Amino acid sequence: MKAWMFNRSELTLALQEVAQPELRAGAALVRMEAVPLLSYTGNYLKGDLPYAYPPSPFTPGTNGIGRIVAVGAGVQQFKPGQRVALNPYWIANEAVAEPPQVLIGLTAVSHDSAQMLEEFRHGSLREVADVPASTPLPLDGLDHLSAERLALLAKFVVPFGGLRRGRLAAGETVAINGASGYFGSAAVLAALALGAAKVIALGRRAQALQQLVALGKGRVVPLVLTGDIGADAAAIREAAGGAIELAFDMVGQASDANSTLALLHSLRRGGRLVLMGSMQAPLPIPYGEMLLNNWELIGHFMYTPADYLALLSLLRAGLLSLDEVDLKTFAFSDLPAAIDHAAQMQGLQATVALMAQ
């Protein structure tokens, strides 16, 4: 079969003929149909990111859509021919306080997960992927959707997990920081699907926010941030018609914490702030105000299998649509061009590599 292979020491990526993986106990072989690309795939392949890479050479690629080819001993539910979504977030299934975890095809997450990366080093940019059976998600009942559209689930499930962790309830108002970004824009649509009464979409690009307003049908209010903590917090409250119940921070690569602190100060008493962005600057927390307001600060990474299943339920019920995303597809063999395109993505855009069927 064909697979894209990355050599970390040489920083080379090449499409190669490799042996099809052997079937293992507790694993599944999946014939890939579509693979979404992260915007920072190019930087990752240049070695610019502080990630713990899998042992080289390996196939990169995280999420994807495919069909089960075969399942190993001990796999109870999945069957050959079944359509599934690949989920790279693999947590060891052991009854310990802090099981090791990795993002397959991308990086180790915990300090003790090197063995997991060795065991399943290859990601989804190959014709047949070998994955732990605990990671695919069944796509039964979604055959009317194309593989490239279903690949967009990867864009939604990350912020969806954070919104669920923040306990967003129907009828609540949520402010989303980074709403004009790749994951932040999806967070706005996910919040609407979960029943948010109003979504305050925060960003620095007014045009990108206006697209979300149109999709919100009166429930999305755009707000361009100024960088002034007090002024932005007051503007959020005004846009919401009062203090908000939930603040969701998905801002990427922020150089300061001002927008995050504006979110915090827009919360009502007892409000929650979920952190899922990639800001590297320190976050100075007002200790006394946290206590007096009973604010809840939640750091959250990725999502749980239950989150993904809930997302699929919304999709089946018609409460969430993947059609609003501007999708650009590339042939599997044209991956370098796809990577370049992915680096330019903004807002409700996505890039997907398609396998020849």
Rank of each mutant, 00 (worst) to 15 (best):
G26H: 14
G26F: 13
G26E: 11
G26M: 13
G26V: 11
A27Q: 03
A27R: 01
A27Y: 08
A28M: 12
A28I: 04
A28K: 06
L29Y: 02
L29V: 03
L29T: 05
L29A: 08
L29C: 05
V30C: 07
V30S: 10
V30L: 05
R31K: 15
M32P: 09
E33V: 05
E33S: 07
E33T: 10
E33L: 11
A34F: 00
A34I: 01
A34N: 04
A34L: 00
A34P: 09
V35H: 01
P36L: 01
P36I: 07
L37I: 07
L38Y: 05
L38G: 01
L38N: 01
L38A: 08
L38S: 00
S39W: 09
S39K: 09
S39C: 10
Y40F: 15
Y40M: 04
T41S: 11
T41L: 05
T41R: 04
T41Y: 07
T41I: 01
G42V: 07
G42H: 06
N43Q: 14
N43V: 04
N43R: 15
N43D: 14
Y44D: 02
Y44L: 03
Y44I: 02
Y44C: 10
Y44V: 01
L45D: 03
L45H: 05
L45T: 02
K46H: 12
K46N: 12
K46F: 05
G47V: 10
D48L: 14
D48P: 06
D48Y: 02
L49W: 10
L49R: 08
L49E: 04
P50I: 06
P50A: 11
P50Q: 13
P50C: 13
Y51A: 12
Y51P: 03
Y51Q: 12
Y51R: 13
Y51D: 13
Y51W: 15
A52R: 14
A52E: 10
A52Q: 15
Y53T: 00
Y53L: 12
Y53C: 07
P54K: 09
P55M: 13
P55C: 14
P55K: 14
P55D: 12
P55R: 13
P55S: 12
S56Y: 05
S56N: 06
S56W: 05
S56Q: 11
S56R: 04
P57Y: 07
P57D: 10
P57F: 12
P57C: 14
F58P: 01
F58S: 04
F58A: 04
F58D: 04
T59E: 08
T59V: 15
T59Q: 02
P60H: 01
P60G: 09
P60L: 06
P60F: 08
P60S: 12
P60T: 03
G61S: 11
G61I: 06
G61C: 07
G61R: 08
G61K: 06
G61F: 02
T62Y: 10
T62V: 15
T62G: 11
T62N: 11
T62I: 13
N63R: 02
N63P: 03
G64Q: 00
G64C: 04
G64W: 05
G64T: 00
I65A: 00
I65K: 09
I65R: 03
I65Q: 06
G66H: 04
